[in-house]
Amino acid sequence: MDALKSAGRALIRSPSLAKQSWGGGGRHRKLPENWTDTRETLLEGMLFSLKYLGMTLVEQPKGEELSAAAIKRIVATAKASGKKLQKVTLKVSPRGIILTDNLTNQLIENVSIYRISYCTADKMHDKVFAYIAQSQHNQSLECHAFLCTKRKMAQAVTLTVAQAFKVAFEFWQVSKEEKEKRDKASQEGGDVLGARQDCTPPLKSLVATGNLLDLEETAKAPLSTVSANTTNMDEVPRPQALSGSSVVWELDDGLDEAFSRLAQSRTNPQVLDTGLTAQDMHYAQCLSPVDWDKPDSSGTEQDDLFSF
């Protein structure tokens, strides 16, 4: 819950932080000083300027060897085509990944977070970031790969997607708890209302004896509580940590079903599988986004697919 609360507080303090972009060759504004600060901008989305290598189908939802083989196929196909790589912007948030063309600003792909089953910074092609997700059109699994400016960037994108998945799962947990509370309150309110109706004398007997209905007592009954809980029953509950912020979080049926399955089948359902080692994760978390744009010590960066 700490990640969720800190993310909400950060967004309320400075929503404009989320509009910064990394990996864009110096076009961005001043960047936060450390990885923790940038992680807090996830709610509205972190932007990464990358190059799209392509996509291939895979048979399993996750796995280092599986993704490595898929990336190898994608890279080989991209090299064989001889075409310049498409420059894209990857927007990562707890909602998922939005992929747009840098030149036309046209939407290429919009992947809900619950469809993503794996992401990684490839070991062999260490400047490549990739994720595996279920197609929104059918049940097939797709591996999408992107060329980053350097290994640090690939690791940073991988960690960002993993963190977005974690925050999304926490949102789901909060929403589920809130819905259970509202359902319980609604049920209790309905029981109270039913009890009051059972003990209320029939209207005919009131008229016969000349008694008047006590409207004041009726007004004191917990009807307002019942209506408050039943009027918006169809509205999706939102985490309290975000009250007053500009973010509107809505959970669709697909996300609810997917996270429910994860909660039942996995020990740590909030953790998205990645190909990063503990050492890689520690190294990337210690980086400032400013470091992502620094040239690798191995030599001059080449803006070309064939540089790796």
Rank of each mutant, 00 (worst) to 15 (best):
S135E: 10
H137W: 11
K5R: 01
K72N: 14
A278T: 00
S307Q: 08
G45F: 04
H28V: 14
E109A: 08
L251S: 10
K51Q: 01
Y52C: 13
A278L: 08
L53A: 09
L203A: 06
S265T: 00
D273M: 07
Y114N: 03
Q163M: 03
A76G: 04
L141W: 04
C199W: 06
A208W: 01
V236A: 12
G54W: 04
L159E: 02
A80T: 14
D256T: 06
Q136V: 13
L31S: 04
T158K: 01
D291G: 01
C148S: 15
Q285C: 03
R182S: 15
I98P: 15
S6K: 10
P295A: 09
N229Q: 05
V92K: 07
A18G: 07
V271N: 02
T160P: 00
L212D: 06
A185C: 05
T231N: 15
D253P: 00
G275V: 03
D198T: 07
R238Q: 01
D214N: 08
T231P: 04
Y131I: 08
V157N: 10
E180M: 05
S135D: 07
L107Y: 11
K84P: 02
V247M: 06
L47D: 13
T160K: 08
M233R: 09
T274C: 02
E257V: 13
G24E: 06
Q86E: 09
T104E: 02
L42F: 12
D291A: 00
I108T: 09
E170I: 01
I74R: 15
A78H: 11
D191F: 08
W249F: 01
F146N: 03
L305M: 07
A284S: 04
K152N: 03
E40Y: 14
W249D: 09
Y52H: 05
A164E: 00
P269H: 02
R9M: 13
G194Y: 00
V128C: 11
S6Q: 07
K87H: 09
S288N: 10
E109C: 14
M124F: 11
E301R: 04
L11V: 13
T104N: 00
E33W: 14
L141H: 03
L42T: 12
L213D: 07
S49Q: 09
L262R: 08
S140R: 06
Q285G: 04
S21K: 06
P222R: 10
V88L: 15
L17H: 09
I97D: 15
H125R: 07
C286T: 14
K79V: 13
K294I: 12
D304Q: 10
R115A: 07
L212Q: 06
G23M: 12
L107P: 14
E257A: 00
A156D: 12
T89K: 02
A219V: 14
V174R: 00
T200E: 03
P269R: 01
P239F: 01
L272Y: 01
A68T: 15
Q302P: 07
K5L: 11
Q285I: 01
V207Y: 02
P201A: 07
V174H: 00
N105V: 06
T158V: 15
N102K: 11
S49G: 14
P222F: 04
K166R: 01
N102I: 10
S186V: 08
W35A: 07
T230G: 07
L99F: 03
L11I: 03
E177F: 05
T158G: 11
E235S: 06
L4E: 02
T100G: 14
L193E: 00
A168I: 04
L287V: 02
Q302N: 01
G23A: 09
L66H: 01
Q106H: 12
E177D: 10
I132H: 12
Q264G: 06
E235L: 10
L215N: 15
N105H: 05
S307N: 07
A258H: 05
A145Q: 14
Q134R: 13
S14A: 03
L47V: 07
A154W: 03
R29E: 11
V88M: 13
K83F: 03
S265Q: 05
A162S: 11
M55T: 13
T100K: 14
E217F: 11
D273V: 08
R238V: 05
Q139Y: 11
D296W: 01
W35M: 05
E64F: 14
D126P: 02
D256A: 14
A278S: 05
T36G: 13
T274V: 01
K179S: 04
E250I: 00
T56Y: 14
T104I: 13
Q279G: 00
T300R: 01
A219G: 15
A133K: 00
Q187V: 03
C148L: 15
S81D: 08
E216F: 13
V161P: 02
P61W: 11
E178M: 03
E216Y: 15
S135K: 10
T36L: 12
A145E: 15
Q60W: 12
G254I: 01
E216P: 02
R115E: 12
K84F: 10
N229S: 03
S112N: 12
R73V: 15
C148R: 00
C286K: 03
D101L: 09
A69W: 14
A78R: 02
L213W: 04
R261T: 02
R9T: 15
K72I: 13
H144V: 14
S260C: 01
S298I: 04
N105D: 10
K294E: 05
E235I: 04
A221T: 00
E59R: 03
